[in-house]
Write a protein that binds this DNA or RNA. Structure first.
Lengths: 340, 340
DNA sequence: GGTTCGATTCGAACCGGTTCGACGATAACA
DNA sequence: TGTTATCGTCGAACCGGTTCGAATCGAACC
């Protein structure tokens, strides 16, 4: 492989001149620049990443820490990952994907060895043990997922409080007064998925304010239990006219549950879910849903991280950016059926 | 961050001695080794990856090129990615995830800049334009997906010929004589997904040998068209007693299609799919299926790549490793129903 | 005509590791 | 007791970039 020394020799200049000609950090005569560029072309020169990293302390790589938790809906993670890698590339960064079980030691290892310029943490838990390491790290980081204590770090997440309120308000406006809310399994919450209770509490509060009856339940973690539980809930709350789902697996299971009971949405029951548009398309889920905005969150996290990496002053104050929930109307809500 | 110079100073030895004490490449007195290790601990020393890469020409990073094609079933890709990253980590390598639209230039860029020690290419097409670059690259590579010309490169894939035969044979043995085979959309084939026709042709040939009638169709690429097409196929072939699905999306759509027609598997129709066990679990697909072995393919590709990277002689002859298909029996096959 | 200045280029140092050759001390050997 | 390996350590060079300071030169200025 050609080095910058080769380029300099072919162009008949010194190594430093070749470097400046390529970086433009000092003025170079048009003539010399031309010769250097010719040499680069004829040799097929590409700078050695390791050498550049050593000299500049910049790797142009972002570390992406993805936690794959058991019982979690893995495919949803892919949207985040793609949002991150694609936007990073647009900004001139490549992505080191870290899927280690032990996120703490992975973070430490990569940070200490200076392999990346910054980190993005996915699936951040309420009390995430990676945050301590990240705060002490030499590189900046962005979180996707709001932890209990976000101090000092940029955070991006869906506004689950607004999402909970929006679900309730939407059905309340249509005339619904009795709703069921199905959350993720309880152990997701225990493991630190506080967004589950943020949405549920907000929905509960808003329902109380509006005089709406809301029955909150945690769903089991796997099929076919989910289907059975959904059926049980419909039995237990025969007067409920609306179903709110903060749970991808439950949404995926719902069509068959409704069909086997001879129900259809929105004629018999209104349904609002919470999942990405891409998820809806893949499994052709016909329900109106709050978009989880996975790719957008990934993109924003990258955007912020890159500007922090490239900003000279590091006194930029951290932000918590909660995306306002947006409803994708797929026609599964309507006024409640009149009681006979 | 501490450098090896700091370690050497604290331990009271030279930089080279510190380096040898840590690498073990020359004999070092127990006393000195002890002092160096103490210094490492007290300073929290971690070698700088860029400097090490520059000195050793080894990055301990693998480049993973994932192509995300439109209309493709993206979640399935995640299994490959996880298989690769996890096994790579076990072998001491991290993974650079490259999702660039333009795989050719991504490959060239990363290879020329010496950011990785080797490549793994996912979703390799029949006539993949990345292979030319890979063959000329300084780093070795492993393919997941069998191209038309695999010469010179290690290849890992499911044996789709055996898979096609196995599907037909399994149902033939149960007494089925009239089958429908649903493939991926035709443009997947056109784009180079030759595995689609490898499976279909093998199934067709085997059916002919066994005197089985086999109706082969390409499915549309997206919902809800897939569901409609499945219904149309069942109408068009009322005597078919078995359904073979080489198409994840079709498998995901099938339960509702069957339910709405009042059919169930295997009582009314036998079904064999082709998707990963993980996929089946996630969407609770109740069909017997040939495991696509995504994670295993990823693991094998890494294993081979790493041994090639670390082997001194580079005259190791390339292999084509086709995994023998394995059926996960989920009880969706049975003897065909007796005709009334 | 001497001085100052900006443009252009070069040489040397540095980033933080690894590794080769040399050297002194000690042990083994004749 | 002199010679030769062996062991343990050090200094220096090298990997391939970037960047600082200095040198050269012609133009502009007084």
């Amino acid at each position: 492989m050609a080095t910058i020394g080769d380029v300099a020799r072919v162009a008949g200049v010194s190594r430093s001149t070749a470097s400046y000609a390529l970086s433009g950090k000092r003025s170079i005569s048009a003539e010399v620049r031309e010769k250097v560029e010719q040499a680069v072309l004829s040799l097929g020169y590409t700078p050695n990443a390791g050498a550049r990293a050593l000299a500049t302390s910049q790797t142009k790589v972002i570390g992406l820490l993805a936690r794959f938790l058991e019982d979690e809906f893995a495919p949803a993670m892919l949207q985040y990952i793609l949002g991150v890698t694609n936007r990073a590339r647009e900004r001139g960064y490549d992505t080191l994907l870290l899927t280690d079980e032990d996120g703490v030691s992975a973070l430490r290892r990569i940070s200490d060895s200076r392999m990346v310029d910054g980190f993005i943490l996915l699936n951040v838990a309420e009390n995430d043990d990676r945050l301590g390491i990240l705060r002490a790290a030499a590189q900046p980081g962005s979180l996707v997922g709001l932890p209990g204590d976000p101090s000092g770090i940029d955070v991006f997440d869906l506004d689950f409080v607004a999402a909970g309120r929006l679900m309730v308000e939407t059905l309340h406006e249509l005339g619904h007064r009795n709703l069921i809310l199905v959350s993720q399994p309880e152990h997701v919450l225990e493991r630190g998925g506080a967004y589950v209770s943020r949405l549920a509490n907000a929905a509960q509060d808003r329902a109380r304010e509006l005089g709406v009856e809301l029955h909150h339940h945690f769903a089991p973690s796997s099929q076919p239990q989910i289907g059975l539980e959904l059926a049980r809930l419909l039995d237990a709350h025969p007067n409920a006219t609306g179903l709110l789902l903060n749970n991808e697996a439950a949404a995926a299971a719902l069509p068959s549950v409704l069909r086997s009971r001879g129900l259809s949405a929105p004629a018999d029951i209104s349904v609002i879910g919470r999942y990405s548009d891409d998820f809806a398309r893949t499994f052709s889920l016909p329900y109106t849903a709050i978009d989880s905005a996975a790719d957008e969150l990934g993109r924003r996290a990258v955007e912020r991280l890159v500007s922090r990496i490239e900003s000279t002053s590091d006194a930029v104050s951290p932000i918590v950016d909660l995306i306002t929930p947006r409803i994708d109307d797929r026609g599964s809500t309507a006024v409640p059926p009149t009681r006979h």
